[in-house]
Measured scan of single mutants.
Amino acid sequence: DMPHRFKVHNYMSPTFCDHCGSLLWGLVKQGLKCEDCGMNVHHKCREKVANLCGI
């Protein structure tokens, strides 16, 4: 059981939050991507995600 390793990410195409399902808005640093499993989340959704990475 490992925690997610979220890192700020710049998305080049429209991407949706894997937690709430809404679009990650903006041009740069729109959200966070787990370096291990690739989960994408809003900055505000980070604390709502279970801290178990499903690598």
Rank of each mutant, 00 (worst) to 15 (best):
D1R: 04
P3W: 14
P3S: 15
P3L: 15
P3A: 15
H4Y: 02
H4S: 04
R5D: 15
F6L: 09
K7P: 02
K7Q: 12
K7W: 06
K7V: 08
K7F: 14
K7E: 06
K7G: 06
V8P: 12
V8N: 08
V8G: 13
N10S: 07
Y11W: 15
Y11L: 04
Y11A: 04
Y11R: 02
M12H: 15
S13F: 14
S13L: 08
P14L: 08
P14E: 04
P14S: 03
T15D: 05
T15F: 07
F16P: 10
F16I: 12
C17S: 00
C17Q: 00
C17M: 00
D18C: 13
H19L: 06
H19C: 11
H19S: 12
H19W: 15
H19I: 08
C20P: 00
C20L: 00
C20M: 00
C20I: 00
C20D: 14
C20V: 00
C20W: 00
G21F: 12
G21K: 14
G21T: 13
S22M: 10
S22W: 15
S22A: 08
S22I: 03
S22N: 07
L23V: 06
L23K: 01
L23Y: 06
L23R: 02
L24P: 02
L24H: 09
L24R: 01
W25D: 10
G26R: 01
G26L: 02
G26T: 02
G26C: 01
L27N: 03
L27R: 02
V28A: 07
V28K: 06
V28D: 04
V28F: 07
K29G: 15
K29H: 12
K29M: 09
Q30W: 03
Q30K: 01
G31I: 01
G31H: 02
G31F: 01
G31Q: 01
L32Q: 06
L32E: 12
K33S: 14
C34R: 01
C34F: 00
E35G: 13
E35S: 11
E35K: 09
D36C: 14
D36L: 06
D36S: 07
D36E: 11
C37M: 01
C37I: 00
C37Y: 00
G38F: 15
G38P: 11
G38T: 10
M39C: 09
M39I: 12
M39K: 08
N40P: 04
N40G: 09
N40K: 11
N40E: 07
N40V: 07
N40Y: 04
V41Q: 04
V41G: 04
H42T: 04
H42A: 06
H42F: 00
H43V: 08
H43C: 09
H43T: 06
K44S: 10
C45F: 01
C45G: 02
R46Q: 14
R46H: 10
E47Q: 10
E47I: 12
K48G: 12
V49F: 06
V49Q: 07
V49S: 15
V49A: 05
V49E: 14
A50E: 12
A50G: 09
A50T: 07
A50M: 09
N51I: 09
N51Q: 08
L52P: 11
L52V: 11
C53P: 14
C53V: 09
C53S: 15
C53I: 12
I55V: 10
I55F: 08
